[in-house]
Design a protein around this nucleic acid. Sequence first.
DNA 1: GATGAATGAGCTTTCATTCAT
DNA 2: CATGAATGAAAGCTCATTCAT
Lengths: 205, 205, 205, 205
Amino acid sequence: MAYRETERTQEKMARKKRDIIKAAREIFAEKGYQGTSMKALAQKAKIATGTVYLYFSNKEVLMSSIVDEMFRELLTIIKNEREKYCDGFDKLQASMDACFRVFMKEKTMARIFLVQVPGVNSTFQKKLHQIENELVLWTQKDLEELKAEGRLPEKDTLVSALAFVGSFRQVLFHYLMEGEPQDLETAYIDLKKYNLRGLGHGHES
Amino acid sequence: MAYRETERTQEKMARKKRDIIKAAREIFAEKGYQGTSMKALAQKAKIATGTVYLYFSNKEVLMSSIVDEMFRELLTIIKNEREKYCDGFDKLQASMDACFRVFMKEKTMARIFLVQVPGVNSTFQKKLHQIENELVLWTQKDLEELKAEGRLPEKDTLVSALAFVGSFRQVLFHYLMEGEPQDLETAYIDLKKYNLRGLGHGHES
Amino acid sequence: MAYRETERTQEKMARKKRDIIKAAREIFAEKGYQGTSMKALAQKAKIATGTVYLYFSNKEVLMSSIVDEMFRELLTIIKNEREKYCDGFDKLQASMDACFRVFMKEKTMARIFLVQVPGVNSTFQKKLHQIENELVLWTQKDLEELKAEGRLPEKDTLVSALAFVGSFRQVLFHYLMEGEPQDLETAYIDLKKYNLRGLGHGHES
Amino acid sequence: MAYRETERTQEKMARKKRDIIKAAREIFAEKGYQGTSMKALAQKAKIATGTVYLYFSNKEVLMSSIVDEMFRELLTIIKNEREKYCDGFDKLQASMDACFRVFMKEKTMARIFLVQVPGVNSTFQKKLHQIENELVLWTQKDLEELKAEGRLPEKDTLVSALAFVGSFRQVLFHYLMEGEPQDLETAYIDLKKYNLRGLGHGHES
DNA sequence: GATGAATGAGCTTTCATTCAT
DNA sequence: CATGAATGAAAGCTCATTCAT
């Protein structure tokens, strides 16, 4: 009985935590981290100010939770997608496809990642950079594999990986800010072509 | 006489403004916008707190001035470099070269552009975006020209331009955060090759 | 039947009240009144936060109950001891002996009385003072008796009584704070001698 | 010129600091440390809340300054008085006289020392205890001297010193709380007699 | 009765901005 | 013109108290 109670309680608590994170994501995406007061955040979540502190010990921890959660979400999806492929170029494309789809589906996440959090606080700065780095590293690993197979002309895989990720980042960011390019799907295909050519993939076949 | 006086006064005022902006650039690059109090800023500029307000009506205006100034600096240099060339690819390269050199020479500017300001405040957000956009637009214009000459296979020049700028941005940002790639000059050359290939330039010759 | 029920209920309630007071005494003695949150207090008593409020309408009332209880305990013990003696000096000594023993046995009480509560809140301030006053008054009454018997040279019994009580208070307080004098039993005997001499008792025999 | 300016400025600042301390002393004496909000304190000093923080980095530092200041005041006066005498008993009396007069003249100080600060915060608790200890130590030193001269029967000078100081403390405290004994001067004389007898001084002559 | 999550008033502290000197 | 002390709104956070379960 007591066990059930605890189980239900924990479930409830987890749900509340998610509710708060959801509200926080939205308002942070809209107003930014510094631009959001804990009072406003609580109002968005339709709870009292103090209640937030029952679930997150302070504002920074809340934000960190959000970033960590997004990190996990993103990497899990990408990992799952990658596992479906063996070929280096396919894995590379799968990663980008997954990443793209996640950001398109959850614009809130994209806004926080690309627009709101950078520059606010060195803690988050580093965290975000770490996430971006993770993507770069995966890309670089794929490129190294391809290079080992003699399928890439380029020597410095770091530069290529950064260029690869950076170009996607820029298109996404531009889209979030301007709503352009309108047909993101087509743009995305062009972008892939651009990068594959950049990597020297065109010469392969 | 009165005229001369005003002229001299304005000149003096402009000089003081520049002094403040210089100090502000440095301290903002180091501590960030939110992390810098007006008092600390004034101390850095070796003036009294209130004096800042004689030249800039508030903190935001000061920051805007900095961004605007950097904007002008950057675009002037790029423009000058571009004028030396006629060929589309040359102009494109000249732009990037100039841009790269400016950021390398003035890391303060780079830090403010890429690291400190984003995400802090929607006003600056927009301003920065506008600058990035300017670079993208010029790039796009160059690409359009090249396309008109039949030297580019790609249709959507916006995507290419974004990819182009984004890849540079990413390498620079990574360098600022991690100090990698250590040999930025070589990396830059590789990066240019990557993008030229991406644009389909390799097929031309 | 109903009567029995109520009786049992009241008994139960009284027991619970005592449990809470016991926990509160300990934690207040350790962390102080202001330093103890109702949540921490409830945890110490192994009940829910809200439950405390079923027995005490608020924090202040709880603290008052503690002080009152300590008051009753102390005075009851002293009264019992005093009844064993007839002679004024004997009664005086009996009072002090009892008081001393109670504080030594229940350091918690001593800490609350002498260290934690004073200065926190004027309500308790007054209550504590009232308790101290009670001791002073009894002492004074004894002294008055002795004076009436011509066994005391001093006229102002209030001053003597205050000096008497104050000297004990100081030794106890010092002991609680510093652990000195180490041999409290001997110190106590010296202290009694000091005060008896102070009262002019030495001249009697 | 600049020197003068700084001198005047420092003087002004010192004056303001004193003003704030004065207001703080009064309101702390009245409402206690915890019972006083920084806002209320600022209002009492007729300045804005933030202004307090120009002079004291936080509430605790302000309170510490007050306690330290009172400490210095008290000890300076006592020291000066003691220097006028050579004989142990005279020095002892001089100390007490001085202490008594200070507290009588500055009831605010007495209230903070004896009534408001104890129990509030272990930092102040310790500081106050240290002050009381200082008095006890001086007393003890005097007693040791007298003992060495064979003028004191008692062996444990710590107990005597504590009794001595404690009896004065109690009378003062009672007076502050109750306004009794009304004729404090006479009471004080009786108190001295009580303690001199307690020390065994009566037997000397 | 018992619970403990929820509340929100109130705290200390910061800092952009003002203005008397 | 320049100063920097003064301002006070607003922030993050705590915790005594309440109340739906």
